[in-house]
């Protein structure tokens, strides 16, 4: 029996979809069977970030309306074994789906797959509740800024009320250089404030933009700091003990290395 995990944040634009795409792909690269579900009905994006938009035929709405079987609605990612996408309907609205319907889809999928990852919409309305309905665990994504952390705190409170456990944190877009200068909230301060387990830190990585442009998740390209961070996160999720490394600052030497490794 697999795990159903909702990936959420409260605030928009902090990296939920990018994280879902990369963690899903990373878990599949580690040999796990994975389904990633876009729960952002009406504003779907996971298919685009994954580069699978041209192959989406059916959506979760079609499954709910019994227009097609669940298995048939899953889009297979051809770049890696056992990675499937369940897309959201773009024509419907978030309250067209009921929490029980999402729950039912998750229950059926977790029998067949090791991991079911749900990409939640931003906000704390119906769409968020639907995304969390079938989940047993949650991953909170936040960036180190006041508004994202405030929203993350609100979401953690809501998830705890639904008995979702464990709830762990990914700190996204951390810049060690800015932290050192005193212009970014540090990892320790974020953890002190939110007081939940840290699953991983993803450093600011400009490769993310290029990877979204191409529709190829970062983890397909070894060596970038973001890709390595997501691979470590996936390993931790499979139960491996992978320490969280202290982030290195950018310096002249690392900039030259980055310049040479750029594609």
């Amino acid at each position: 029996m697999g795990k159903v995990i909702v990936i959420t944040s409260g605030k928009g634009g902090v990296g939920k979809t990018t994280s879902t795409a990369n963690i899903g792909t990373a878990l599949a690269l580690l040999g796990k069977t994975v389904v990633i579900i876009d729960a952002d009905v009406g504003l779907r994006n996971l298919d685009v970030v994954m580069g699978l938009e041209s192959r989406v035929v059916f959506t979760s709405m079609d499954v709910i309306e019994k227009k097609c079987d669940l298995e048939k609605a899953l889009v297979k990612d051809r770049r890696v074994e056992d990675l499937m996408l369940l897309a959201a309907s773009q024509r419907n609205r978030k309250d067209d789906i009921k929490p029980e319907q999402m729950q039912d889809i998750c229950e059926r999928l977790k029998v067949e797959y090791d991991f079911v990852l749900i990409d939640s919409p931003a906000g704390i309305e119906q769409g968020f509740h639907n995304a969390a309905a079938g989940a047993e665990e949650a991953i909170i994504i936040t960036t180190p800024d006041v508004s994202a952390i405030r929203d993350a705190d609100r979401i953690i409170g809501l998830l705890q009320n639904q008995d979702i456990n464990p709830i762990s944190l990914i700190l996204n877009r951390l810049s060690p250089t800015l932290v050192k200068k005193g212009n970014m909230i540090s990892k320790n301060d974020v953890l002190d404030i939110l007081n939940i387990d840290l699953l991983g830190i993803v450093p600011e990585d400009e490769g993310v933009i290029a990877s979204t442009n191409r529709g190829v998740p970062l983890v397909h390209n070894d060596g970038s700091p973001g890709a390595e961070a997501y691979m470590r996160i996936a390993r931790r999720m499979t139960g491996q003990r992978v320490p969280i490394p202290e982030m290195r600052e950018d310096n002249f030497f690392s900039n030259i290395l980055n310049w040479f490794s750029r594609k």
């Binding site: 800024d145 006041v146 952390i149 405030r150 705190d153 609100r154 409170g157 932290v179 005193g182 212009n183 970014m184 909230i185 540090s186 301060d189 404030i193």
Partner: peptide, 24 residues
């Protein structure tokens, strides 16, 4: 002097106050 002016410390202090009010 520099501790006073670091924006990250200001952010952390503001957040603690905001969250205390949110949670209460």
């Amino acid at each position: 002097f520099s501790r006073k002016t670091k924006s990250s410390n200001i952010a952390t202090q503001r957040l603690k106050l905001i969250l205390t009010q949110d949670r209460f």
